[in-house]
Design a protein around this nucleic acid. Structure first.
Length: 428
RNA sequence: CGGGGAGUGGCGCAGUCUGGUAGCGCACCCGGCUGGGGGCCGGGCGGUCGCAGGUUCAAAUCCUGUCUCCCCGACCA
């Protein structure tokens, strides 16, 4: 586990001059991300840890419903995109290689996965099938914005289900609704699952997962037992819409801005028809494969978490996403007894499997505390001269900046680790 | 694509109107002090002022072109 004196965490006192969105400002200030160009972002080590936390949650829930992870290329031949008609989408990056062959940079992977399934799947015995990968998506966005919220390149987990008929597709879809509900809950975010637009994917039904926050680009309409994308609510005959106000069955609905963090679609046979994905059913008749697709953007989940839980001092991660569980602050110069005590605690935590970031830099307490609160790890432990006097490690809970009872400095490692774990389990 | 704004050291800015050879805060390096909320003193390093061309004795500053970035809108799996 890293020592801050050796770790690349470039924190800034001031946000970038051109940043507007809270998550944009804080993620740059906290040293999580850096910009390379419009809509092009680098994840620095601490930021990437958060990103990979989200990835791990998604992977576990996908694997739990029997989905199989794989990897498909971003650089693709144009031909399948011509067959599905998506070659004309303006957001699609198109290029030629040195021989003049037409290529695209994939914005999603329906064309690729369906091409493979068309070749591989021959029989109803090969179905159902759920395939997924985490892969970069490329989109020539007209206007990238708000840091990592809307970029031209981003990692998406996209999954595709392949079934023998509409009823089986519905089953796969429901399986994903369950998995998505669970992964969203595990991130610790506030979220809603709403009826979605079908959009450029084409298809027969969709849901979106929306995380309410100020920087959101979408509007969601909410009431008791009702949640919908504002665009969809307009088409709902049960919803009245007057002067920007929404009502349903006499109940006034609230409207909140939100980020779309995931998106699932019933595709039907649109792609399998275009790319020839067919199989023989148990009666020997040729049938099209029924498809659905399931996308989720880890970067947006990270940004949404920043937006939802930040305060005036910085980020406050839900524990499921925090880059480190513990931010250990050592006060006092190297060679002092208090520093020795901090070093010992760092070793104990590390050996106990606690994910700890150790601030061993030669800086004043103010800067260390400020950086810790900016980065937002759920637990901050401080060891300084006072700890030696009181015999206690100082504990601050990042959420709410609450001072918790101190932990014994000289106790048995097992007891200390158990106490830290108990604290950890109690956090949001 | 329409509208608005901005490019000056790693970050945030002043200087541009009125041309005279680049400055401030932070950060960074060296030395010292300090050591529980971004502390202090002293000494330093670092910038072809986005790029190209033009005007001029002289251009960060004026002119022309161009690139890039941000915000609002349109768009958005």
């Amino acid at each position: 586990m890293p020592r801050l004196s050796e770790y690349l965490l470039p924190t800034e006192k001031q946000p970038p001059a051109d940043a507007e969105a809270l998550s944009h400002k804080l993620m740059v200030r906290a040293g999580l991300i850096r910009q390379l160009g419009a809509g092009m972002w680098t994840w620095l080590p601490a930021g990437w840890r958060v990103h990979q936390r989200v990835v791990a949650i998604i992977r576990e829930e996908m694997d739990a419903i029997g989905a199989q992870e794989m990897l498909m290329p971003v650089l693709q031949p144009a031909e399948p995109w011509r067959k599905t008609g998506r070659i004309d989408i303006e957001e699609l990056f198109k290029l030629n290689d040195r021989k003049g062959s037409e290529l695209v940079l994939a914005m999603t992977h329906e064309e690729a996965v369906t091409t493979h399934v068309a070749q591989i799947v021959r029989s109803y015995r090969d179905l159902p099938l759920i395939l997924y990968h985490f892969q970069v998506k490329e989109r020539d966005e007209p206007r990238p914005r708000a840091g990592v919220l809307r970029t031209r390149e981003f990692v998406m987990k996209d999954a595709y289900s392949f079934d023998r008929d509409p009823a089986a597709m519905e089953q796969s879809y429901e399986l994903h609704v369950g998995a998505y509900d669970r992964m969203m809950a595990r991130t610790g975010l506030r979220f809603y699952r709403v009826q979605g637009d079908v959009g450029m994917m084409g298809g027969v039904g969709a849901h979106e997962y929306m995380a309410p926050c100020a920087a959101g680009e979408d509007q969601i309409v909410l009431g008791a037992g009702y949640a919908a994308n504002a665009e969809v609510a307009l088409d709902d005959p049960q919803v009245e819409h007057v002067n920007g106000e929404y009502a349903r069955g006499g109940e006034r609905l609230s409207v909140e801005p939100a980020i779309e963090i995931a998106n699932i679609f019933k595709l039907g046979t649109r792609y399998s028809d275009a790319l020839g994905a067919r199989f023989l059913d148990d009666a020997g008749a040729e049938q099209p494969v029924w498809m659905a697709c399931y996308g989720i953007g880890p970067a947006r989940i990270v940004a949404a978490a920043v937006e939802q839980f930040a305060d005036e001092h910085g980020i406050s991660w839900p524990r499921a996403l925090a880059p480190f569980a513990v931010h250990l602050v050592a006060l006092g110069k190297p060679g002092t007894p208090e520093r020795d005590a901090a070093d010992a605690l760092y070793a104990t935590l590390g050996e106990g499997g606690v994910e700890v970031l150790y601030d061993d830099r030669d800086l004043g307490p103010g800067e260390k505390f400020a950086d810790a609160e900016l980065l937002g790890c759920p637990l901050r432990l401080t060891v300084g001269r006072r700890s030696l006097e009181s015999g206690e490690i100082e504990v601050q809970l990042r959420r709410g900046r609450v001072q918790a009872p101190g932990l014994p400095l000289a106790g048995e490692p097992e007891q200390l680790l158990a106490a830290v774990d108990e604290l950890w389990q109690s956090l949001p």
